[in-house]
Design a protein around this nucleic acid. Structure first.
Length: 179
DNA sequence: CCCTGATTCGC
DNA sequence: GCGAATCAGG
């Protein structure tokens, strides 16, 4: 991919609108966020209203060359002094009432957005929430625990469609039936 | 770990 | 000019 005028314009627009370099790279396609950043600098667009970081650090020195050759060096055998690790038992069990369906609201990410096609990651729950046509459509976005889903949605996903847990055997129902 | 932009420099 | 590698930080 090359920086055609159209792509450059799209880059300018998105960058000006405040999108991050990685988001722009995803949207344009064919480039990495590094490419986007590099282009932004070449265009002189840097210094956008830095949203969440004053970032003022002293000038960096020249990049150290990555050791061109890696010759095997005799490594002194080192006996590690046994790492003492205490396995702390988790005392409190989460008493989460298993919900049936899409009642779990999409998680809010650190950037304030919900999980969408751009920021959805392998490590995130891919349970769709809402109407894909709706602008509010999002993915669950919680930490994926069981395959592609979070703990809660994995329960639903792997539950046979037919079997359904009846919650009728409550105390009140029991009373009602008895008395 | 995820992410952000900044910088250098070989290509 | 391009962008991977790297850095510095949230």
């Amino acid at each position: 991919m090359s920086w055609t005028e159209e792509r450059v314009e799209a880059l300018k627009k998105l960058w000006t609108e405040g999108h991050s370099a990685s988001q722009i790279a995803n949207q344009l396609g064919g480039v990495t966020r590094n490419a986007v950043i590099g282009k932004v600098h070449r265009l002189g667009l840097s210094g956008r209203a830095t949203p969440s970081r004053p970032v003022k650090r002293p000038p960096r020195l020249a990049r150290p060359k990555p050791t061109p050759q890696r010759v095997e060096q005799p490594v002194k055998a080192k006996v590690e002094p046994e790492a003492v690790e205490e396995t702390a038992a988790t005392p409190a069990l989460p008493t989460v009432a298993p919900r049936g369906d899409e009642v779990l609201a999409p998680a809010t990410l650190s950037n304030g957005e919900h999980a969408n096609v751009l920021n959805l990651r392998e490590s995130m729950c891919k349970w769709p929430i809402g109407d894909p046509m709706d602008k509010d459509f999002a993915f669950c976005g919680r930490a994926a625990a069981d395959g592609p889903y979070c703990k809660e949605h994995a329960k639903v996903a792997f539950q046979p469609k037919k079997s359904r847990v009846r919650k009728e055997n409550t105390v009140s129902n029991f009373r009602r039936a008895a008395g």
